[in-house]
């Protein structure tokens, strides 16, 4: 036989053998499946802010009905509410406190805490997670590592941080310098208490988006503007708007509809957006702005002092990588900073 042909056959055999090596584990996996379950669908904890709090409460709930509880009961450790200086270093299990607790010393607890009442500390505390049936009031420089839930108000003292989840059934108050990630409550108050403000009542001019440069009617209620767009002061527009460039909304102007811009958005003082405010870059709201719908940015949202987001009856969502909130801002619903949120002193 020709030697070239032999070499060719050898080469083909070698290549085939190399290819077959990959088929051996494939064959085994086919014949004896070891990983053939359907992919698990994302669990609820990613969308439900109270997921961990609810799960924890469902475990605690059984113990609340017991007549006398003290010491360790396998899953939980009980601490007396009357102890104003409990020894937290001894804690090795999740904690249940059966009544309100007012601490006079710094607290460090690396286990979830349940308080069947109010919980009050003086500051510089470090908690893993906490669920209370009443209020939570943490002093300055405190930190909640995982989550906190309160049936009533949550107050975080200045320079505190809650890097994961914070939710309340009524109200959350974050003093200046607080860092947060995901906050949810019917009312969320940032920084200073809200001050009275007299709304300027300039006459507003009813206008149409079609008057703006580069406007194209996309549908009956939607206008697209190619390039940058600047909306003058004291105007009212009805309908939704898409801007392919940068958008500046003038002071005191109102847009009764949804607004989207692909570049930055700046909303002037005392302006109002009646729907959603969506941007692929930064959103800056100046002082006393009101936005009723969701505010979504892919980078940074800066909310100016005394602005309002959402309304009490219809809570909404503020979401961005980073969120900077000025003093006196009120949000209704969820504020979610995927990287970091901070309350500014001024």
């Amino acid at each position: 036989m020709n030697s070239n042909l032999i070499h060719l056959i050898e080469f083909i055999a070698f290549c085939s053998a190399l290819m077959l090596i990959a088929f051996r584990p494939a064959w085994r996996e086919w014949q004896f499946p070891s990983d053939c379950e359907p992919l698990p669908i994302s669990p609820d904890y990613s969308i439900d802010i109270d997921y961990f709090a609810t799960s924890f409460y469902s475990k605690v709930e059984n113990f609340l009905t017991k007549e006398s509880v003290s010491g360790n009961q396998q899953d939980f450790q009980f601490i007396s509410a009357s102890a104003s200086k409990p020894d937290w270093s001894d804690i090795t299990l999740p904690v249940i406190v059966m009544n309100s607790m007012y601490l006079k010393e710094v607290m460090h607890c690396q286990f979830p805490v349940f308080v069947n009442g109010d919980f009050h500390t003086i500051g510089a505390d470090n908690l893993k997670s906490i669920y209370t049936q009443g209020k939570i009031s943490l002093g300055p420089y405190s930190r909640i590592d995982d989550w906190a839930y309160a049936r009533e108000t949550i107050i975080l003292g200045y320079e505190s941080s809650a890097p994961r989840r914070l939710s309340s059934a009524t109200c959350i108050y974050l003093e200046h310098g607080c860092h947060f990630e995901r906050v949810n409550a019917p009312v969320i108050s940032f920084g200073l208490r809200v001050q009275n403000y007299t709304v300027q009542s300039n006459a507003l001019i009813e206008s149409s988006f079609s008057e703006l440069k580069g406007a194209v009617q996309q549908s009956s209620s939607l206008t697209l503007i190619r390039g940058d767009c600047e909306i003058p002061n004291d105007r009212v527009y009805r309908g939704s708007l898409i801007v392919t460039g940068r958008l500046i909304v003038g002071d005191r102007s109102r847009i009764i509809g949804d607004v989207k811009a692909r570049k930055n958005i700046v909303v002037g003082v005392n302006a109002l957006i009646g729907g959603a405010l969506i941007c692929e870059k930064n959103i800056t709201l100046k002082e006393y702005v009101c936005v009723k719908g969701p505010i979504i940015s892919e980078v940074l949202i800066t909310i100016g002092a005394h602005s309002t987001v959402g309304i009490h009856e219809l809570p909404t969502t503020v979401s961005a990588e980073r969120i900077i909130v000025g003093p006196g801002v009120i949000a209704h619903g969820t504020v979610w900073a995927r990287e970091r949120g901070v309350t500014c002193p001024s």
């Binding site: 949810n184 979504i296 219809l314 809570p315 909404t316």
Partner: peptide
């Protein structure tokens, strides 16, 4: 990019 996944509360 998951820009809208966080919207939980809204009208």
């Amino acid at each position: 990019r998951h820009p809208y996944i966080d919207i939980d509360d809204a009208q």
